[in-house]
Write a protein that binds this DNA or RNA. Structure first.
Lengths: 110, 110
DNA sequence: AAACTATATCGTTATATTGCAATATACAAA
DNA sequence: TTTGTATATTGCAATATAACGATATAGTTT
C-alpha cells in the first residue's frame, strides 16, 4: 500500500449516497414524479401507473421510504404515500452549495 | 392485467436516474467532493485518497464519466479529471423546480 | 530501446438489485 | 364470518455491481 489511504467515507457522503441510490432507478424516479404530480398522496394507483407488478412497486416504495424520501400514512385499508419535503430540500441545498463552490473556482484543465 | 399501465419511463426519468445512480455510491460521492475540494483537476491522487485499489477507482471514474458528471483530459502521461459544471447545474435546477412544485401544494395526508 | 509511471481493461469472485409469482396480513364490506 | 380489496413479505431466478489481481496500453525518462 502506498502512503496514507483514508479508511472510510464521511457520514455525509454515505447519507447522500443512500439518497441518490434510492433515486437511481427509473421506476423510483417515476414514483417520485408521480407523487409530485398528483399533489397529495396515493397508494395503489402507482401500480396502475407503472409497468410493474404490485410486489415490485411495493418494494420500490419501501426503498424510497427507507431513504426518507417519502412518507406513508395508513388510512384504513389503504396506505397514503407522499413526498417528504425535508429530504427534497436537503437535496436542493446540497446542489445549491455544491454549485456555488464550483462557480467560485476556475478549472485549469478540461 | 388491470387497466392501462404505461409501457415505459420518460427520457428525463431515465436520464436523471442514471445521474443519481452514478452518485449513489459513497466512493463516487467522495470522488466528486474531492474534485470539488481540490478545485482544478486531479488524476491518481484519488487512488491515494480513497480506501480502494487503483482498478476500482478507475472503474468508478469511468462510471462518473459515462454519466457526464466529470470530464477527463489527457495530459501526457496523466489524466486530469474535473467536474462537469453543466451536469451539476442540471441537478441543481432539477431540485429547484421539484422543490418549488412541492411548496405550492398542500399534502392532505402524512 | 529499457525501465518506469499512470491509467485502463480483463477476468473472476462475492454480493446486491430487480422483478415477480405465491402467499401472508389487515382492514372493509356483505 | 365469509368475501373482497390493498398492501407487504417471502422465495427464487436473472442480472448488475463492486472490488481487485493480473495484465495491457501509452506516454516519459534514462
Amino acid at each position: 500500500m502506498k502512503i496514507s489511504k483514508k479508511s472510510s467515507y464521511t457520514d455525509s457522503q454515505q447519507e447522500m449516497a443512500l439518497l441518490f441510490k434510492a433515486l437511481g432507478h427509473p421506476a423510483r424516479m417515476a414514483i417520485m414524479e408521480f407523487l409530485l404530480k398528483v399533489n397529495a398522496c396515493i397508494c395503489g394507483d402507482i401500480v396502475d401507473e407503472l409497468p410493474l407488478a404490485q410486489p415490485t412497486v411495493s418494494q420500490h416504495l419501501k426503498e424510497l421510504k427507507n431513504a426518507g424520501l417519502i412518507k406513508g400514512n395508513i388510512e384504513g385499508n389503504t396506505i397514503c404515500y407522499c413526498i417528504d419535503e425535508n429530504r427534497i430540500e436537503m437535496l436542493h441545498q446540497y446542489f445549491t452549495i455544491f454549485s456555488s463552490n464550483l462557480i467560485k473556482k476556475d478549472n485549469n484543465c478540461c
